[in-house]
């Protein structure tokens, strides 16, 4: 079975509180905190769609969609 490929990676900027959990635990260093203290998927090309950021987001702000969803 082919691994799921990233379709969209969205972060709700109103809900995100900039805690950095998604940034720190991303295995591929895709995310970073911007100068507004919000998380952004700065390097989407590196994303392997493991969804760890979505699962660990305490603010329910991250949504990762893959071609399998």
């Amino acid at each position: 079975m082919a691994k799921p490929k990233l379709k969209t990676h969205t972060i709700d900027r109103d809900w995100c509180k900039g805690c950095s959990i998604c940034v720190e635990f991303c295995p591929k260093d895709v995310l970073e905190i911007d100068d507004m203290d919000k998380a952004v998927a700065a390097r989407k090309d590196d994303c392997i769609a493991c969804k760890l950021c979505e699962l660990r987001c305490p603010d329910l702000a991250v949504e990762v969609r893959t071609d399998k969803d």
Binding site: D14, C16, K17, I21, P58, L60
Partner: peptide
């Protein structure tokens, strides 16, 4: 009601997230 009242990084949000899943 979002964003919720919990502080940035509060683990309770992760529990909510997991519970819904």
């Amino acid at each position: 009601f979002f964003p919720h009242i919990w502080c940035a990084g509060c683990g309770h949000g992760i529990v909510l997230n997991s519970m819904i899943r």
